[in-house]
Amino acid sequence: MNGLDQLTPIILTVITASTPLLFAALGELVTEKSGVLNLGVEGMMVIGALAAFAVTTQTGSAVLGMAVGALAGAGLALIFAFLTLTMLANQVATGLALTIFGVGLSALAGTGFVGIALTPLQKLDIPVLSSIPVLGPLLFNQDVLVYLSFAMVFAVYWFLNATRAGLILRAVGVSHASAHAIGLPVKLTRYLATLFGGLMAGLGGAYLSLSYTPMWAENMTAGRGWIALALVVFSTWRPGRLLAGAYLFGFITVLQLHAQGAGFAVPSQVMSMLPYLATILVLVLISRDKIKIMQNAPASLGKPFHSAK
C-alpha cells in the first residue's frame, strides 16, 4: 500500500464536494462578466435540487431530471432578469430576495418529496482507462455531471476568450454605455448571461440531490450558493482560477474531516474555519497585482442599464 492509494479516495470525496460549487460559480461568473450581479445563487441552486429530484423520482429519468433542474434554476433567473433588467430594480436586493423566494418555494413544493430515497446517479465508467491505477478511478469513473462540470470550464473559457459572442458579453460587462453606443444588444446579452447563470446553478443543485446526497430535504444546499458567489470573486472572473478555487475549497473541507478522523486534537469549530481562512489567504496572495484584476473585473457590475439614459 502506498500513499497514492490512500489519496485516491480523498480526491474522490473532494470531487463530489467541489462539483456543485463549480457549476454554480461558473454560471455566476458568466452572469457577472456581463455586468449583472445576481446574489440569488443559493435560491436557484435549491430550486434546481428540488426540481431535479422531483422529476427523476417521478419519471425515473435522471437526464430529464437534470434538464428540468437546470431549467428551474433558469426560471428563477428569469424572474431576476425581468426585475433587474427590464424593471431596473436594484440587483443586490433583488438577488437576496430571490434566495428567500427560492428557498421558500422549494420547501413548499418539496413537502411530498421529503424522506424519499433515490438510487444515486450512475457512474460513467470509461472502459480500460478507468482501470489505470490511481488516475483511472479519478478521471474515468465519474458520473456525467462531473464530466460536464469540467467540460463547462473549458467551454466557458473558450466562449469568453475565443468567440465573438464572448467578446460582446465582456464588452457589455465593461461598459454598457459604450457597448450600446456601438450597437451591441446590451439587454439581450445580459438576459442570456443571467439565464445561463440560472441553468448552471440549477445543475449544481441537481448534482446535490441526484448524486452527492441523493435525497430531497429542505434547505439542503446549506449555504453552498454563497460559497459559489465568493468563489467568483476569488477567481477574479477567470474560469481556470475558478476551477482551482472550487477545488481548493473542497479540498480543505475534506482534509479537515480527515484530520479529525486521524485524531488531530484541535476544536472542530476551528477545523471548520479552515476552508474560509484558506480562501481569504489565497485571495490576498493573488490579489496584489491590482492592474491585472482591474482588467478582468466587469467594470459595470451591478449597475442598472437604461438605453435612453
Binding site: 424572474i79 430594480a89 430576495a97 427560492g102 429542505e218
Partner: peptide, 22 residues
C-alpha cells in the same frame, strides 16, 4: 401555513417593492 409560505411571500413582496421603486 408552513414557514415556507413566509419565505415565498416575503420574496414576492420584496420583488414588487423593488420593481415598483423604479
Amino acid at each position: 401555513t408552513p414557514a415556507a409560505v413566509t419565505g415565498l411571500f416575503q420574496g414576492a413582496l420584496l420583488f414588487f417593492l423593488l420593481a415598483c421603486d423604479v
